[in-house]
Amino acid sequence: MEQIELKHVYFQYPNGYLANEDLNLTVKKGEQIAIVGQNGAGKTTAVKLMNGLHKPSKGEVIVDGKNTKKFTTAQIARYVGYVFQNPDDQIFNQSVYAEIAYMPKYYKMSASEIKNRVEESAALLKIESFLDKNPFEIPYVMRKFVTIAAILATKPQYIILDEPTAGQDLKGIEVLADLLKILKKQNIGTVTITHDMDFVANNFERTVVMANKRIIADGKTRDIFGEDDILRESKIKRTLAGEVAVELGMGKCILNIPDFLQEWSKLEVKDGK
């Protein structure tokens, strides 16, 4: 089966802190899911289990039929690419080009293939103009894009993006939304952790919600935002259009501005003319 599967997974850090409890989750190849939830809920811990950076203390993680316990992180990382929450945990090369080229080189690809992959990945993130810069001297959000490009260049089957929307501006959010569409076409599975509710509402059909070490909900984004208890427990919120709709008694199923317009046009209201 082409999917990532977490089965009754628990994870305890070396200092004894239990960060994940009884996680059950399946992400199919080609599928795109968002993971949301309060700070410290265990999201980063959970996704590190998917690419073998963490091995479960109890339970099993199965990637395309293979149990991660029986493979090294390097072996799994070729299937499942993880982009770190903090880009500085990932970057270690002295130029952006070298950083993106690093894994293709490690996999002993031909010089022309390496060059193609670097250029292609950089173009997707619109960071071509930074290729000869030192990654430690470019702004934080650009560094984040460098780390995404570096993972794209390995052409994994699945990609995990940990908070790619943090600190992004209008253009950055657009780049990310376009990237998701391209990955979808390429049938690459993606898991995106984000605190940006507008981004979730506008880009994901399926959302997984975490709170207090556990997955507390997994379903259609629209249904998730309709449940007040889930929102409260996981410290997330509706988008502004969603909140306004609730206040006006238009129901809890309005996700974003397009939804709002559609429902509003069904109401009998004064048009202001």
């Binding site: 501006d169 209008l170 507008d198 259009a241 306004v244 501005i257 317009l261 509003w264 202001g272 003319k273």
Partner: peptide, 21 residues
């Protein structure tokens, strides 16, 4: 490149549909 509040964007979208504020 300036982000606008969702409230402003919603009212803008509504006014494009003929609801002026």
């Amino acid at each position: 490149g300036v982000m606008f509040p969702q409230a402003a964007l919603l009212s803008k979208a509504l006014s494009e549909k003929g609801f002026d504020f």
